[in-house]
Protein backbone atom coordinates (compact mmCIF):
# COMPACT_ATOMS: atom_id res chain seq x y z
CA UNK A 1 0.00 0.00 0.00
CA UNK A 2 2.84 2.30 1.00
CA UNK A 3 4.51 1.95 -2.39
CA UNK A 4 1.31 2.96 -4.18
CA UNK A 5 1.15 6.09 -2.06
CA UNK A 6 4.76 6.88 -2.94
CA UNK A 7 4.04 6.26 -6.63
CA UNK A 8 1.03 8.53 -6.47
CA UNK A 9 3.03 11.20 -4.68
CA UNK A 10 5.83 11.07 -7.25
CA UNK A 11 3.36 11.11 -10.13
CA UNK A 12 1.67 14.17 -8.69
CA UNK A 13 5.01 15.89 -8.15
CA UNK A 14 6.07 15.18 -11.72
CA UNK A 15 2.70 16.30 -13.07
CA UNK A 16 2.85 19.47 -10.99
CA UNK A 17 6.39 20.16 -12.22
CA UNK A 18 5.28 19.59 -15.81
CA UNK A 19 2.34 21.88 -15.31
CA UNK A 20 4.57 24.53 -13.76
CA UNK A 21 6.91 24.43 -16.74
CA UNK A 22 5.86 27.07 -19.23
CA UNK A 23 5.44 26.07 -22.85
CA UNK A 24 8.46 27.26 -24.84
CA UNK A 25 7.94 29.37 -27.96
CA UNK A 26 8.33 27.48 -31.23
CA UNK A 27 11.89 26.28 -31.78
CA UNK A 28 12.96 26.97 -28.18
CA UNK A 29 13.41 24.87 -25.03
CA UNK A 30 12.89 25.72 -21.40
CA UNK A 31 15.74 26.02 -18.90
CA UNK A 32 14.56 26.25 -15.27
CA UNK A 33 15.91 28.71 -12.73
CA UNK A 34 18.52 27.55 -10.28
CA UNK A 35 22.13 26.78 -9.58
CA UNK A 36 24.58 24.89 -11.77
CA UNK A 37 28.28 24.10 -11.86
CA UNK A 38 30.10 26.67 -14.02
CA UNK A 39 33.72 26.69 -15.18
CA UNK A 40 36.35 23.99 -14.75
CA UNK A 41 39.46 23.23 -12.77
CA UNK A 42 41.32 21.53 -15.65
CA UNK A 43 40.80 23.81 -18.65
CA UNK A 44 42.29 27.20 -19.55
CA UNK A 45 43.08 29.62 -16.72
CA UNK A 46 40.10 31.81 -17.67
CA UNK A 47 37.65 28.94 -16.88
CA UNK A 48 38.65 29.03 -13.24
CA UNK A 49 37.65 28.87 -10.48
CA UNK A 50 34.90 26.35 -10.90
CA UNK A 51 31.90 27.82 -9.12
CA UNK A 52 28.19 27.47 -8.37
CA UNK A 53 26.33 30.00 -10.52
CA UNK A 54 22.64 30.93 -10.71
CA UNK A 55 20.32 31.82 -13.55
CA UNK A 56 16.69 32.75 -13.80
CA UNK A 57 14.45 30.57 -15.93
CA UNK A 58 14.71 31.24 -19.66
CA UNK A 59 13.96 29.85 -23.09
CA UNK A 60 16.77 29.15 -25.53
CA UNK A 61 16.80 28.25 -29.21
CA UNK A 62 17.02 24.54 -29.84
CA UNK A 63 19.34 25.14 -32.81
CA UNK A 64 21.75 27.84 -33.93
CA UNK A 65 20.15 30.48 -36.14
CA UNK A 66 20.29 29.26 -39.73
CA UNK A 67 21.21 31.06 -42.93
CA UNK A 68 17.59 30.98 -44.08
CA UNK A 69 16.35 32.37 -40.76
CA UNK A 70 18.93 35.13 -40.80
CA UNK A 71 18.04 36.02 -44.38
CA UNK A 72 14.43 36.61 -43.30
CA UNK A 73 15.76 39.40 -41.11
CA UNK A 74 18.36 40.66 -43.59
CA UNK A 75 17.44 39.91 -47.22
CA UNK A 76 20.89 41.16 -48.28
CA UNK A 77 22.54 38.33 -46.32
CA UNK A 78 24.44 36.06 -48.70
CA UNK A 79 25.12 32.37 -48.13
CA UNK A 80 26.02 29.42 -50.39
CA UNK A 81 23.18 27.77 -52.28
CA UNK A 82 21.88 24.64 -50.57
CA UNK A 83 23.07 25.80 -47.15
CA UNK A 84 19.72 27.18 -45.98
CA UNK A 85 19.68 24.95 -42.90
CA UNK A 86 23.32 25.55 -41.92
CA UNK A 87 24.33 27.89 -39.11
CA UNK A 88 24.73 31.52 -40.16
CA UNK A 89 28.14 33.13 -39.65
CA UNK A 90 27.80 36.74 -38.50
CA UNK A 91 29.40 39.46 -36.41
CA UNK A 92 28.27 40.12 -32.85
CA UNK A 93 26.39 43.24 -33.90
CA UNK A 94 24.59 41.34 -36.66
CA UNK A 95 23.65 38.65 -34.15
CA UNK A 96 22.39 41.23 -31.67
CA UNK A 97 20.33 42.99 -34.32
CA UNK A 98 18.72 39.72 -35.37
CA UNK A 99 17.89 38.85 -31.76
CA UNK A 100 16.24 42.23 -31.24
CA UNK A 101 14.25 41.79 -34.45
CA UNK A 102 13.11 38.36 -33.26
CA UNK A 103 12.13 39.86 -29.87
CA UNK A 104 14.83 37.79 -28.21
CA UNK A 105 18.38 38.47 -27.01
CA UNK A 106 21.81 36.85 -26.96
CA UNK A 107 22.45 34.54 -23.98
CA UNK A 108 24.76 35.57 -21.19
CA UNK A 109 27.73 33.28 -20.62
CA UNK A 110 25.97 31.79 -17.60
CA UNK A 111 22.80 31.08 -19.55
CA UNK A 112 24.73 29.56 -22.44
CA UNK A 113 26.79 27.29 -20.21
CA UNK A 114 23.81 26.14 -18.17
CA UNK A 115 21.82 25.35 -21.30
CA UNK A 116 24.78 23.36 -22.62
CA UNK A 117 25.76 21.31 -19.57
CA UNK A 118 22.83 21.29 -17.20
CA UNK A 119 23.51 21.28 -13.50
CA UNK A 120 25.97 18.40 -13.08
CA UNK A 121 29.16 19.98 -14.45
CA UNK A 122 29.51 17.64 -17.42
CA UNK A 123 32.31 18.23 -19.93
CA UNK A 124 30.17 18.05 -23.08
CA UNK A 125 26.42 18.57 -23.55
CA UNK A 126 25.86 14.78 -23.67
CA UNK A 127 28.30 13.72 -20.96
CA UNK A 128 32.03 13.41 -20.46
CA UNK A 129 33.13 11.41 -23.50
CA UNK A 130 33.91 12.73 -26.98
CA UNK A 131 33.23 11.09 -30.29
CA UNK A 132 33.30 12.54 -33.81
CA UNK A 133 29.81 11.18 -34.41
CA UNK A 134 28.39 13.49 -31.71
CA UNK A 135 29.13 16.74 -33.53
CA UNK A 136 28.45 18.34 -36.88
CA UNK A 137 31.52 19.17 -38.90
CA UNK A 138 31.78 22.92 -38.83
CA UNK A 139 29.47 24.49 -41.35
CA UNK A 140 29.51 21.61 -43.78
CA UNK A 141 26.71 19.71 -42.09
CA UNK A 142 23.28 21.15 -41.53
CA UNK A 143 22.12 21.90 -38.00
CA UNK A 144 21.42 18.88 -35.83
CA UNK A 145 22.94 16.67 -38.51
CA UNK A 146 25.49 14.76 -36.43
CA UNK A 147 25.29 10.99 -36.59
CA UNK A 148 24.41 10.40 -32.92
CA UNK A 149 22.28 13.55 -32.59
CA UNK A 150 22.91 14.06 -28.88
CA UNK A 151 20.87 16.69 -27.07
CA UNK A 152 21.96 18.85 -24.16
CA UNK A 153 20.15 18.17 -20.86
CA UNK A 154 17.44 20.66 -21.87
CA UNK A 155 17.14 19.58 -25.50
CA UNK A 156 19.51 21.87 -27.41
CA UNK A 157 21.54 20.65 -30.40
CA UNK A 158 25.03 21.55 -31.59
CA UNK A 159 26.19 23.31 -28.43
CA UNK A 160 29.50 21.49 -28.98
CA UNK A 161 31.03 21.86 -32.41
CA UNK A 162 29.24 23.24 -35.45
CA UNK A 163 30.04 26.99 -35.28
CA UNK A 164 31.19 29.06 -32.31
CA UNK A 165 28.32 30.95 -30.68
CA UNK A 166 28.24 34.56 -29.56
CA UNK A 167 27.22 35.44 -26.04
CA UNK A 168 26.11 38.84 -24.80
CA UNK A 169 29.04 39.21 -22.40
CA UNK A 170 32.35 41.01 -22.58
CA UNK A 171 35.40 38.85 -21.97
CA UNK A 172 36.03 39.37 -18.26
CA UNK A 173 37.53 37.26 -15.44
CA UNK A 174 35.28 35.13 -13.30
CA UNK A 175 34.97 36.22 -9.66
CA UNK A 176 38.17 35.31 -7.77
CA UNK A 177 40.09 34.58 -10.98
CA UNK A 178 43.41 36.34 -10.56
CA UNK A 179 45.14 35.19 -13.77
CA UNK A 180 46.27 38.33 -15.60
CA UNK A 181 44.94 38.57 -19.16
CA UNK A 182 45.42 41.73 -21.18
CA UNK A 183 42.40 40.72 -23.28
CA UNK A 184 40.02 41.05 -20.31
CA UNK A 185 37.82 44.13 -20.49
CA UNK A 186 35.34 45.57 -22.94
CA UNK A 187 37.14 44.96 -26.22
CA UNK A 188 36.21 41.35 -26.90
CA UNK A 189 32.98 39.40 -26.60
CA UNK A 190 32.91 35.79 -25.41
CA UNK A 191 32.12 33.03 -27.86
CA UNK A 192 31.34 29.47 -26.78
CA UNK A 193 30.88 25.96 -28.03
CA UNK A 194 33.90 25.69 -30.30
CA UNK A 195 33.95 24.88 -33.94
CA UNK A 196 34.69 21.35 -34.95
CA UNK A 197 37.31 22.73 -37.32
CA UNK A 198 39.36 23.42 -34.18
CA UNK A 199 40.50 21.00 -31.49
CA UNK A 200 37.76 18.99 -29.77
CA UNK A 201 38.76 20.30 -26.33
CA UNK A 202 37.51 23.71 -27.42
CA UNK A 203 34.00 22.27 -27.73
CA UNK A 204 33.85 21.64 -23.96
CA UNK A 205 30.91 23.36 -22.29
CA UNK A 206 33.15 25.41 -20.01
CA UNK A 207 35.62 26.60 -22.65
CA UNK A 208 35.72 30.35 -23.30
CA UNK A 209 37.21 32.22 -26.23
CA UNK A 210 37.31 35.90 -27.01
CA UNK A 211 36.73 37.68 -30.30
CA UNK A 212 36.32 41.24 -31.46
CA UNK A 213 32.59 41.83 -32.03
CA UNK A 214 33.11 43.17 -35.55
CA UNK A 215 36.41 41.70 -36.79
CA UNK A 216 35.62 38.02 -36.94
CA UNK A 217 38.43 37.26 -39.41
CA UNK A 218 38.17 33.57 -40.41
CA UNK A 219 36.40 32.42 -37.24
CA UNK A 220 33.21 30.53 -37.89
CA UNK A 221 30.97 32.17 -35.35
CA UNK A 222 27.19 32.11 -35.26
CA UNK A 223 24.63 32.34 -32.47
CA UNK A 224 21.41 31.20 -30.87
CA UNK A 225 19.00 33.40 -28.93
CA UNK A 226 17.30 33.33 -25.56
CA UNK A 227 14.03 34.78 -24.33
CA UNK A 228 13.01 35.64 -20.79
CA UNK A 229 10.18 33.71 -19.19
CA UNK A 230 7.37 36.19 -18.53
Amino acid sequence: MKKYIYALYISLAVAQSALAQPTPPKGMVYVPAGAFIMGSHYGDPDERPQQMAMTNAFFIDKYEVSNAEYAQFDPEFKFPAGKENNAAIVTWHQATAYAKWAKKRLPTEKEWEKAARGTDGRVFPWGNYYDESFVVWDQKTSRGGSIAKPESPYGCFDMAGSVWEWTADWYKPYPDNDTPMEQYGETYKVMRGGSNFNDQALTRTSHRYYLHPEKISRYNVGFRCVKDVE
Binding site: D44, Y130, D199, A201, L202, R204
Partner: peptide, 16 residues
Protein backbone atom coordinates in the same frame (compact mmCIF):
# COMPACT_ATOMS: atom_id res chain seq x y z
CA UNK B 1 47.67 34.82 -23.76
CA UNK B 2 48.25 31.64 -21.76
CA UNK B 3 45.32 29.83 -23.39
CA UNK B 4 45.68 26.61 -25.29
CA UNK B 5 45.90 27.27 -29.01
CA UNK B 6 43.13 26.23 -31.39
CA UNK B 7 44.88 22.98 -32.28
CA UNK B 8 47.40 22.61 -29.46
CA UNK B 9 45.98 19.77 -27.42
CA UNK B 10 48.09 16.77 -26.41
CA UNK B 11 46.93 17.02 -22.80
CA UNK B 12 46.22 13.81 -20.85
CA UNK B 13 43.55 15.63 -18.81
CA UNK B 14 41.61 16.78 -21.87
CA UNK B 15 39.88 14.75 -24.56
CA UNK B 16 42.19 14.83 -27.57
Amino acid sequence: DGKMTMWGNFCPDLPH
